[in-house]
């Protein structure tokens, strides 16, 4: 059986990839993708712990996260499309109207 620590390692790797992606990518679509990656890294960690402890709470939490992610995708993509229609690009850096 694959040890729990391997799962956690993979989860950590995915999470780091996600953070780096959010920080260095300028295209909103890829930023979005990276956020999804981070969510799923967390999911993986939770599932791994659930297996390690033999309990189901964490597994059910994963379902909540997945639902949440689906809802977030729906809204997020809608916003993205709206921005694209207005600006013909999905670069995030020029979106600075709300600057204080």
């Amino acid at each position: 059986m694959i040890p729990t620590s391997d799962y956690l390692l993979l989860s950590g790797l995915l999470f780091t990839l996600g953070i780096v992606g959010v920080l260095i990518r300028r295209t909103a679509v890829l930023v979005f993708l990276s956020v999804e990656l981070m969510l799923n890294a967390a999911n993986l960690a939770m599932v791994a712990f659930a297996r390690a402890w033999g309990q189901l709470q964490a597994q059910s939490a994963v379902f909540i996260v997945m639902t949440l992610a689906a809802a977030e995708v729906a809204i997020g993509l809608a916003i993205l499309i709206a921005i694209f229609r207005k600006r013909v690009s999905t670069e995030v850096d020029p979106l600075s109207e709300m600057k204080g």
């Binding site: 300028r26 995030v92 850096d93 600057k99």
Partner: peptide, 9 residues
């Protein structure tokens, strides 16, 4: 509040 989304992230 620089206006850069990635700084906020």
């Amino acid at each position: 509040q620089s206006g850069f989304v990635r700084v906020y992230a």
